[in-house]
Nucleic acid binder design. Structure first.
Lengths: 246, 246
DNA sequence: CGAGCGTTTGAAATCGGTCAACAGCAGTGG
DNA sequence: CCACTGCTGTTGACCGATTTCAAACGCTCG
């Protein structure tokens, strides 16, 4: 399970611009290589770590997509995030020393193993690494707050539109097609993440398609009217530089 | 505004057990004193910092209660948290260099100003401080995930019951009465935080009172049937040691 | 090609939202 | 000290978005 699949180097990783090496010079990111020396391959549907398990590492997604879910004592669970290459997973675990969520691969994936005590140790020596580490944690917090807004203040339609646009932006950043992509997650995962039922997700996809906003065929999504999606999402004038008057 | 109200010392602060000094020895927490040298008094209703403002510090609540709210471009806002003494505010701001939320005092309050570059610098020298700093950020992330569950998977009734129990636990930790307290926030704040309308909050309080779970008079709350609240909250057997069979 | 899961669609039920009126308490000023 | 005013909270009636229940459809994989 934890067999090192192959060695990886942060210093040459194409995902460095999203991940821990941001802001480090060549010499510094070479020192990161020693931390991320192990990779784990996680097959579709396999678990990377489980809620309640002891923590020793955070993971950087290198390839593929994973989801994290948090479960309540009564068994109810919810997807707390979808993770694309370059994103760090397991940051919520440091507090209690146990993983606060379970992580499962949505497709065959690879992650770098970064032992937390080594990361802590090195980030004491490299202020740039410390800064980026803190930035990543902080971003997770502030993106969480945005998700509060989504779950608490938006209608189902808006939540789904925002979700699609957010995915699209993240794909675009990574050089993938932003207007046409395959969803790696099921309707159930989407519904769970967005706090709605699977039937609602399905109906909304149909409605979006009927309105000419997107084409949807199973998990393949193609944006037709991106600006329309932005409007639905309540994102005023994100595409054309329209300012919101006050 | 930023006038130092009076000096404070982490090394002698009663809130040290919740705040940054956790895990530090006397000599180490004495070094923290230099960081938290300034206090700010924030009057009820006054703003501590505003979403979008430049970041230079995080704040530790010393006295009182504050709320943080995040706003969307279209003006919709939601309360993202209530902060009791010993809790750190502003951790969501480090990522972008701008505050991702606005913080307002719910009663006359005092906070310690902790400049982030000084905190970063000192935590490079004190592994114990670094560990606690990371724990606090990580806890914010994992508590956020729990709030996802609340907003996305719970009914209004459960959300409010959980909210009351969570507040109670936090008061208890700090040595305040856990079964009888004054809410510092309005119904509107509660509703915003829990993703429901003010009328729903009000009706639920009335229903809880009618069911004999609590006594509510304006903002004063008294728990009558705590176990009943736990059941409503979906927290199986938190009080009596009942295990959930599988 | 069939089994089984994931997805879509329809109809009915419901929780919570919206609109509206009222009540209670606090602060102000006469 | 009390009336006035305004804000916060409560309650009722109605409405609508989303859930729930149910059934059919269509991929995908063995």
């Amino acid at each position: 399970m934890t067999l090192p699949a192959f060695s990886s180097k942060c210093s040459t990783c194409a995902l460095g611009q999203f991940c821990l090496p941001v802001g480090l010079n060549a010499e510094e990111s070479a020192r990161l290589d020693a931390l991320a020396r192990d990779n784990i391959r996680v097959k579709k549907g396999d678990m990377l770590f489980e809620q309640g398990g002891a923590v020793g590492a955070v993971y950087a997604v290198r390839l593929g997509t994973l989801k994290t879910t948090a479960a309540l004592a009564d068994g109810r669970a919810q997807v707390t995030g979808f993770h694309l290459p370059g994103e760090l997973i397991g940051l919520d675990a440091i507090a209690a020393g146990r993983y606060a969520s379970t992580s499962v691969a949505l497709e065959d994936s690879e992650v770098c193993v970064i032992r937390t005590h080594e990361l802590d140790s090195l980030s004491r020596q490299l202020p740039g690494l410390q800064a980026q580490y803190h930035r990543l944690m902080s971003r997770e917090i502030s993106e969480g707050h945005l998700h509060f807004l989504s779950l608490g203040s938006m209608r189902a339609e808006e939540r789904l539109a925002n979700f699609l646009l957010n995915l699209s932006e993240r794909y675009a950043l990574r050089g993938y097609a932003a207007n046409e992509f395959n969803l790696r997650m099921s309707r159930e995962d989407i519904g769970s993440y967005l706090g709605m039922q699977i039937e609602t997700v399905s109906r909304l996809f149909s409605r979006f398609a009927d309105s000419g906003l997107v084409q949807v065929k199973q998990r393949h999504v193609k944006f037709i009217d991106t600006e329309g999606l932005h409007q639905l999402a309540g994102r005023r004038g994100t595409m054309p530089a329209a300012r919101c008057e006050s």
